[in-house]
Design a protein around this nucleic acid. Structure first.
Lengths: 201, 201
DNA sequence: CTGATATTATCACCAGGTACTAATCTTAAG
DNA sequence: CTTAAGATTAGTACCTGGTGATAATATCAG
């Protein structure tokens, strides 16, 4: 029986555990054909915790992700912002945003990025989405970087409302487009809309 | 030392474990002031698995939630569903959904509930949002229960598209309204839209 | 009081490890 | 060839957080 170099075995071990974190050491011996002690030495060297620790970590992670949810205050990184004029945000589609079977991002994440930016761009204490007219032009897939560009088209037409036009691109391809009407407070607060945002310094 | 009625203790035990699923039986004895054996009998009667089982379940759930996303697939509890006809979903606004300063729900959560329902109602393997025309009628606040009602208005007009009309209420007050156009696969897959969903049996 | 139910105690056992020591195998260098 | 170093395997004691079974005790209701 040929022996595998240690480095290579380490890589394989790490990959196996990554692929199926629920494998016991004993099960790993069957795949790697080495003794359980070596498995354990390898895990030590690689800093991979035991099965129960791994499950605990996953459980804890999922536990507080239920508490704090995936949708944060602002979805996407706002990389450029000219208040009441324009803004750009970047959002990368990851595992947790897509349907696994298709790899297509769930619509509300794409919307959330757009909505966050449309609200952030408004230069007022409180901004709330009143209406949105949106169009998903093509599905966005796992790993793609969505670049949303928003432009304020009318700063304050009637009744403290601003229009924001928004386009989301992947590369130079447009994937999403939306027209938002955002309510802006004129000093006072919560009157309309479905969204708002926090302090501005 | 006064003894607590069994029923009441069972409730308390279930609540404690629900609040903190990472508690060992030994820790529970400190809270409930009863022997560890009784804790274990109680768990048996209530069908609550041991700590390690609980962690394993959470870990597995979160693990294939990355693979197949059962948890966040649908935002809100779908309480009634007549495919290609109508559906109702309930979603309670909690801390993690609102802006802390105002207590107003962020728009994308309300949208997510609506979008999830609009997509779920379509009786096809894959359903993707193409367009949405939405209106936030009044802000939704912390603690409010959003009841979304969706109606399919045209099952398949042109090019495999269905129209879904949707209203979200808090009590008898309408807080959100939307018109969705949903693309439905006719057996094949991912062509348009920004959302999809999984199997239907 | 007596029987039923509830609670506690004890003991053996299990999975999936850690921690440590010791033996064996392999390999390369002197 | 010999020997030292490193890699691998073996074995033992011990740990946590339990299960399962049995038995003893407590509590309460009729």
């Amino acid at each position: 029986m040929e022996r595998m170099p240690k480095r290579q075995r380490h890589q394989l071990l790490a990959r196996l555990i990554d692929e199926n974190p629920f494998m016991t050491d004993r099960e790993l011996t069957r795949h790697l054909k080495i003794s359980i002690q070596t498995i354990r030495l390898d895990r030590m060297e690689l800093g991979i915790p035991e099965l129960r620790e791994r499950m605990k970590l996953m459980a804890e992670r999922s536990y507080d992700s239920v508490r704090s949810l995936p949708l944060h205050e602002v979805i996407g990184d706002i990389v450029d912002l000219q208040l009441d004029k324009s803004g750009i945000s970047i959002f990368e589609i990851r595992d947790e945003h897509v349907f696994s079977r298709t790899g297509i991002a769930r619509g509300h994440h794409v919307f959330a990025q757009a909505n966050s930016l449309a609200v952030a761009i408004i230069d007022d204490k409180i901004a709330l989405t009143v209406t949105a007219d949106i169009r998903f032009i093509r599905p966005v897939k796992l790993g793609e970087k969505c670049i949303a560009k928003a432009y304020v088209r009318s700063i304050s037409g009637e009744r403290n409302k601003s229009k924001v036009e928004l386009f989301t691109y992947v590369g130079d391809e447009m994937v999403f487009q939306g027209n938002f009407v955002i309510y802006r407070s004129a000093g006072d607060a919560e009157n309309e809309g479905g969204d708002g945002h926090a302090d501005r310094h």
